[in-house]
Design a protein around this nucleic acid. Sequence first.
DNA 1: ATGGGCACCTGGCTGC
DNA 2: TGCAGCCAGGTGCCCA
Length: 271
Amino acid sequence: MPELPEVETTRRGIAPSLEGRRIVRVVVRERRLRWPVPRGLEKKLEGRRVTSVRRRAKYLLIDTDGGTLIAHLGMSGSLRVLGPGAPLIAHDHVDLVLDSGRILRFNDPRRFGCLLWAGDDPERHPLLADLGPEPLEHGFDGETLWRKARGRRVAIKLFIMNAQVVVGVGNIYASEALFRAGIRPTTPAHRVSRARMAALAEAIRDVLGEAIRVGGTTLRDYVNPDGLPGYFRQRLSVYERAGEPCRRCHTMIRHAVQGQRSTYYCPTCQN
DNA sequence: ATGGGCACCTGGCTGC
DNA sequence: TGCAGCCAGGTGCCCA
């Protein structure tokens, strides 16, 4: 569920409670996530001190003085920081108990998320090794996009959702960024001009940045580590607005399916 | 190498 | 009220 803004909001929410704290106990109630929670993860983590909490793409990297825990929230996962003795609810799969008494609790109804051990140098982990640039950092611009699009006939929406092209752009923000850039989602990637790729890169940065600033998008069940929703939903231009008027030109927003996923666009503003 | 489709899972909503 | 069917913030993997 969470895209980059929701993962970043999660990171900012949990980091202050984790950094500098020691993990005193790890409780795994359900190992069957996207990949099984490794046997022995408890032993790896117990007694370790958290040094930092970082994000790469939609992965959270919890660095300790003895290696790094990789966490992914999948479609329905969340991490919350709770007080001692907080009651369990359905799908509370894993707890990291801290020396402060607080608990970092991983909940994931659909179990598409994962918790994996990366040891030192997590960047070399197979899941992270081949990732493209971070959209909010230097090294991502229209030129990068344009170059990678040479010879690529895939639809531009699928192209920007490809983590080898750029990371962190999921289904909501792909539609939103294409609306802002005025590009039809079905346009083959290699047909998008340099100038429009520049506009698209800027739109991606803008929409992700704005979403982070308001705590991400809550459509159904996303909550940040304090249990609060994100407020970007009311700023969505097209996502889940099929049949409603475009905020810019009042044409009805349209729905389409690409790669078995919903796409939304304005047929007038996006060409 | 590229593109397309499937799989993994639970829960909420819709319509008969 | 019950239930089948459809849909959902992701992404690795298999096949042509």
